[in-house]
């Protein structure tokens, strides 16, 4: 009799214990957090992780994508003069453009911040225009301004008897032009980020600095910039990554010319991978900057985190 009860009881109890643990696990905050993040994780996996892993895989195949060649494509690139020209141009393009975007953004943010709040919105809106227009479209407008036959800039220069400038056909001027357009498109992003940061600095810090004896420059260097350091670091990091990956401006304005002097990694990867049909080599080009940018991101974000803890 006793044995019978025990035997009947076991199969009933065992699943209830299992269900209890499962429910407890489901009710844990960490489980709920992971489940709520799952849609985002799925999207990131499909749109970022998979293409990234696949491009690494592609970069290690031969041109016909039939054999594994390891780092062969990278070693091949290292021997090509054009590739080093692209590296040089990409670094020059990214550094000069980001420096100017940051400077112009900072100056413009200060200028907008001094406008009384009543009239500030329209200026903010107008200054954001370059950033909200699709870059391929606005770059077409710039192309028209630079284009040798109808160049509006050259027409203006001619009015002052200045000789025409070969905006897109001379190496220096072509580089100047693509950087100029990138700065024009990207500076409003810095403006809006810096403006938000400026507005978050308490006014009484400036008043305290005034009483402490600080001049306008000293307030900028001792109050404004230190208070904006995190936003500056994050904005610059984001902009470096986006600027290195720029495609549309160079593609529309110069197609990488003259003599490959304005190619960036993205446009060169497109030329090699799509137009020349060597997708593995194109993948190798596009992956080249990844380790450097990853290390840069790690260092900047670690500093940001440390400052957030201290300030």
């Amino acid at each position: 009799m006793t044995v019978g009860v025990a035997v009947r009881g076991l199969p009933e109890r065992a699943p209830s214990v299992r269900r209890g643990r499962f429910y407890l696990w489901l009710r844990r905050r960490s489980t709920i957090a992971v489940m709520m993040c799952f849609p985002l994780l799925a999207i990131i996996t499909c749109l970022v992780a998979y293409p990234f892993a696949y491009s690494i895989y592609l970069s290690m195949l031969n041109k016909a994508e039939t054999a594994f060649v390891g780092f062969g494509n990278f070693l091949f690139l290292f021997k090509r003069e054009t590739f080093w020209l692209v590296v040089q141009q990409s670094i020059l393009f990214a550094l000069v453009a980001v420096i100017f975007k940051a400077l112009i953004g900072l100056i413009a943010a200060h200028a907008v911040n001094t406008i009384p709040s009543k009239g500030q919105r329209k200026w903010r809106g107008m200054m954001m225009v370059p950033w909200v227009i699709p870059p391929a479209l606005s770059t077409l407008g710039w192309w028209w301004l630079f284009e040798p036959t109808y160049s509006a800039f050259n027409w203006l220069l001619a009015e002052f008897a200045v000789p025409a400038v070969p905006w897109l056909s001379d190496v220096f001027w072509a580089r100047f032009s693509v950087i100029l357009v990138n700065v024009w498109v990207g500076a409003p992003f810095f403006l809006i980020m810096y403006l938000a940061s400026l507005k978050s600095i308490p006014e009484d810090l400036y008043e305290a600095a005034s009483i402490d004896g600080a001049s306008a420059w000293q307030k900028l260097f001792h109050v404004t910039l230190p208070m904006m350091r995190n936003i500056i670091a994050i904005t610059v990091l984001f902009s470096i990554i986006v600027t290195f990956a720029n495609f549309d401006i160079v593609r529309v304005l110069t197609q990488g010319g003259p003599r490959n002097s304005t190619h960036l990694f993205a446009t060169y990867a497109f030329r090699v991978g799509i137009e020349s049909g060597d997708i593995p080599l194109g993948a190798a080009v596009s992956l080249f900057m990844f380790p450097a940018l990853a290390i840069l991101s790690f260092v900047i974000l670690r500093n940001v985190r440390q400052r957030t803890v201290n300030i």
Partner: peptide
């Protein structure tokens, strides 16, 4: 009122 100490 809010001390206005430089946080950095």
């Amino acid at each position: 009122q809010n001390y206005a100490l430089y946080p950095h």
